[in-house]
């Protein structure tokens, strides 16, 4: 890898369990962190459902994402944003999530894209 690390914006749009994308996105983010590449995460659309508390996945026999997501800050993934409109549309309270995230308005959301030249789309 080159010496100067380019920071990555990981854009998440999928809900947690109907497909494998949410998990694969998380794996990619954790890998970036392991390689000490700065990575910001943005939850949009149905990806905000990944942040709901009280996920119990024993019944569908998949690994619970809600137990892995809270480790992100421990891996130095500190910039975690969520589209406030996506929360409001779904009646989700930003204070009740499994992870401390920063709700952003449209203008901030747009500037996140403009401020990153490396985007991973999930």
């Amino acid at each position: 890898m080159t010496d100067k690390k380019q920071s990555i914006l990981a854009v998440l749009t999928k809900p947690p369990y109907g497909g494998t994308t949410a998990k694969e996105a998380l794996d990619a983010v954790l890998t970036a962190a392991a390689f000490e590449v700065p990575v910001s995460v943005l939850f949009m659309d149905d990806a905000v459902f990944q942040l709901l508390p009280e996920q119990k996945t024993e019944g569908i026999e998949v690994k619970c994402l809600a137990t892995t997501l809270p480790v992100l800050p421990m891996y130095d993934v500190e910039h975690i944003y969520v589209d406030r409109k996506a929360l409001v549309d779904r009646g989700i309270d930003a204070e009740q999530l499994i992870l401390s995230v920063q709700p952003v308005e449209t203008d901030t959301l747009r500037s996140l894209f403009q401020n990153h030249s490396r985007i991973l789309s999930f």
Binding site: V11, M44, K85, L109, R110, S111, F113, Q114
Partner: peptide, 8 residues
Amino acid sequence: NNCLRAIG
């Protein structure tokens, strides 16, 4: 719709 929210 998502795109139109994010587009600059």
